[in-house]
Design a protein around this nucleic acid. Structure first.
Length: 208
DNA sequence: TGCCAGGCCCTCTTTAGGGCCTT
């Protein structure tokens, strides 16, 4: 059975191109709709955490200074992912930090990323918004810790992805749900979602 | 304190502008 790596970074800001660095990473391995493994670590990139970020995430300068070096953590994270396809909530954000941090230690970062924000916009257009916390409440997903810490957010995104996989199975009759299907779905116009899923499921059945 | 990005998406659009989402 194929597994998917769901990742979440906590960082000092929103742009690695502006000098922002990762302070924490968590990766949750999802297999058959179940969380089967976890990786989490704070990391010390040698930068200071400002008061807004500390208030937002709970991560302090003392915590970061006591953490292992960023390069060491990123090498371990890359080994944990081991080339698996990846998913993140607003993947454009986590993907650019993944690439920036791995580039600093000469590691390959060419993993395909699917995005639960894009998928949610396709599958749950009725949602009031597509923030992770809102979607977790909407689907009554289990909470697994403090929001805006990497492991809690990665687990929440994994539960959201599992919910999407469940809905695709029950609504559209999918028996196999791979990463390529998710990549195709997130690239599909919201007006073409039904046609795309119907084509991919092989015309077994569709509720659209 | 407030700003810093960027890809995606919508619409009163497409020769554009602005909101969403992440920290």
């Amino acid at each position: 059975m194929s597994s998917i790596a769901i990742i979440d970074f906590e960082t000092t800001g929103i742009s690695p191109n502006m000098g922002d660095r990762a302070t924490e990473v968590a990766i949750v391995m999802l297999e058959g709709g179940q969380v089967v493994d976890r990786f989490q670590s704070l990391m010390n990139a040698g930068v200071r955490v400002n008061s807004f970020i500390t208030q937002f995430t709970g991560i302090t300068n003392e915590m970061v200074q006591a953490a292992p070096p960023a390069e060491q953590v990123m090498r371990e994270a890359a080994r944990f992912v081991a080339g698996r396809p990846m998913v993140a909530h607003n993947a454009a954000f986590d993907k650019k930090f993944w690439q920036a941090e791995l580039a600093r230690c000469g590691q390959d970062a060419s993993h395909p990323y699917a995005c639960t924000v894009l998928l949610s916009r396709r599958l749950y257009p009725q949602a009031p918004n597509h923030k992770l916390g809102t979607l977790a409440a909407l689907h009554h997903l289990p909470s697994s810790g403090r929001a805006h810490r990497a492991l809690a957010d990665a687990e929440m995104a994994a539960h959201l992805l599992a919910q999407m996989q469940h809905d695709l199975r029950t609504r559209y009759g999918f028996t196999e749900l791979d990463h390529a299907l998710l990549m195709g779905l997130q690239r599909t116009s919201r007006y073409q979602v039904g046609a795309y899923l119907k084509a991919r499921v092989g015309g077994l059945r569709s509720s659209i």
